[in-house]
Design a protein around this nucleic acid. Sequence first.
RNA 1: GCUCACGUAGCUCAGUCGGUAGAGCACAUCCUUGGUAAGGAUGAGGUCACCGGUUCAAUCCCGGUCGUGAGCUCCA
Length: 587
Amino acid sequence: MGEVALTTDASPVIFADEKEAEVYRHTSSHILAQAVKRLFPGVKLGIGPAIKDGFYYDFSYHDSFVPEDLEKIESEMARIIEEDLPMVRREMEREEALAFFAGLGEVFKVELIRDLPADVAISVYHTGEFADLCAGPHLSSTGKVRAVKLLSLAGAYWRGSEKNPMLQRIYGTSFLHRKQLDEYLHRLEEAKKRDHRKLGRELDLFSLHDEGPGFPLLHPRGMIVRNELESFWREEHRLAGYQEIKTPVILNRALWERSGHWDHYRENMYFTRIDEQDFAVKPMNCPGSMLVYKDKIHSYRDLPIRLAELGLVHRHELSGALHGLMRVRAFTQDDAHIFMLPSQIKEETAKIIDLIDRLYQVFGFDYHVELSTRPEKAMGSPEMWETATRALQEVLLERGMPFAINEGEGAFYGPKIDFHLRDSIGRTWQCGTIQLDFQMPEKFDLFYVGEDGQKHRPAVIHRVIFGSVERFFAVLIEHYAGAFPLWLAPLQAIVLPVAERHHAYAARVLATLLEAGVRAEADLRSEKVGYKIREAELRKVPYMLVVGDKEAETGQVAVRRRRTGDAGAFSLASFIGRVKEEIASRS
RNA sequence: GCUCACGUAGCUCAGUCGGUAGAGCACAUCCUUGGUAAGGAUGAGGUCACCGGUUCAAUCCCGGUCGUGAGCUCCA
């Protein structure tokens, strides 16, 4: 099953449509290029398109740009906007354009023109002294751009290939109004505050060490969240008719040769030698699951068989790709393989969607789906693809789920449906995926015995819902900004005695809470209540129970809810009742 | 893996134009027993990522390695 990709979709809707935003940002990128040209004569231009949330421009220059340069460039951009230079489109003949850009020393532009199809019109946009090869369209003049901001600096290969020279890329964004830009920058700040790497340390959930790049260590508090996630997952899978398995982390070479990983995925795998035989650390769970299926003969009456596995896989990701818990080298997929009759594909797919829907909804995630179809290099007959893709599509249509189609983006072994969920600040994350697999049943010669007593090939779906448990955990940390709902909170309640004479009562309250199955602590340090509250707030503990003379006398607790403050006094019994209910409802 | 930047106490960071370092928070001890987001005092804590080089002397300069960050690339 493929690695999930991180996508962000944080663009607030402010432009009339995507086209307008694109034109606006594209003009912004020309202004950027013009400013850089003015400040750094001799710079060579790469490309400068509009992208989601902004724009960038690539430059080749003999010196490295530094962050301070961005400010200078921004000021120059402001000047260009002030000058309100008209953007003039001019069409050129191919030869004329080549000569024009060659004359300017713009080697990359020359290369671009050479690669343009013979029949397209070549257009150049002029703004004052500046000219750039560009299909357009553009705003009528530079003064139309109002709020612009350069954001970052990075290296990028010319035309995205590491064989080509590395250019310097400047990222920026622009908006119709200053206020929108400020809002956007504020969202970036907000995202930074929620960064799971920062919160993970502050809340003592997990850590990363030089000793294990890409191999995160889960701390006791992180482990509580993870265990809660997994038991929720197990409960739902049991109800949905899945059986759980566990397959080994290390299996021998022959298996990986058979599955095709040895040939196609070796670059990303870890190996070891045991008793003079080659073994591999699994990068995926499917082969193990296939072995379980093959271990006995199945009748068509047994199908579908749904084998689920929280499987720990290792993949040697590029060092530059590692990122907190989001992109690691060892992670747990909440995998499942469904072995079924070809006629059961639709029904099983629908059931998986039900399950995914139920799981996401508990976290308050909205989501959208995308259907990916047959790629160029595909395995299996076109008819098979046609049938399978239609099955997936029909399921989505029948449920009235809107979906985008990604032509040719399917895995080469089968079409798939991807789930992109939207977090509390509007970013989207691809987590769940449902993939039909035509390859594994063939490679492993899977069969079931049909009504006719003959061997038949089962269809196989593999699917994940969280994707990677570690990554889903990271998404949740950012989604909740560390303030987990009660059922997930590492610490659910903390007892705060006002003075030392209340310690005995606090201890009784704590014991009762623990007995009731509430994750609780008592803060018995000789500090003021205000101090203890502050600390509990920072730890994002959902309930703080202040106990002093009044409470000790009446057998009550003074409840304070995280962030919202004093909630009044409750008898200990009624508080526990309410908390247990809140935990059970996972609300 | 590639480009650029960065790596100083558990955390966030300052600092030394080359003479072995400092703050706040956290931690420990003591005083304080205080009712809803920081009471006070004292103290401990660092081979300045690692390995080499230059130098009388390197945390600082140079090279390499490892790690981290932003991108790129890759992603069955």
